[in-house]
């Protein structure tokens, strides 16, 4: 898709203190591997998202370093242990230096 990569994030709205929750993330991105050729036979330059991170209230939760073998529209599913209410922050770093971000609040009782 030509439009700017758009993240989608799924985090439960509420959780119990100390509970381990499931987080899912998806972002629209071609993940151009740098291996494909165009119609003239020229290599299409690599352009991927190379890093994904998830933080909770400023603390690292999970991250992933990516290579071109990650599929287009990168998807992640992972866990997080939530001690208190707060904010999840997600970021995706593009080869061209762009950073796409999203935030989600969670109420912990």
């Amino acid at each position: 898709m030509a439009a700017k990569p758009k993240p989608r994030v799924k985090v439960p709205k509420t959780a119990k203190a100390g509970e381990t929750i499931v987080i899912k993330t998806l972002i629209s991105h071609k993940m151009e591997s740098g291996q494909r050729k165009d119609k003239e036979g020229k290599i299409i330059p690599r352009k991927i998202i190379n890093k994904f991170t998830c933080e909770f209230n400023g603390e690292p939760v999970f991250s992933c370093d990516m290579d071109p073998a990650i599929s287009a529209n990168p998807y992640f599913e992972f866990r997080a242990k939530v001690p208190e209410s707060g904010m999840f922050k997600f970021s995706w770093v593009d080869d061209d230096g762009s950073v796409y971000t999203d935030e989600q609040k969670i109420e912990v009782s």
Partner: peptide
């Protein structure tokens, strides 16, 4: 992955905040 042009796929990094060391993605 040992049959791709380059074997590297990804590295998952966990912390105590992960709670459980479990992750899913999709690859080529």
């Amino acid at each position: 992955a040992d049959g791709n042009p380059n074997p590297d796929v990804a590295t998952f990094n966990f912390t105590a905040m992960s709670g459980v060391a479990e992750a899913t993605t999709r690859m080529r």
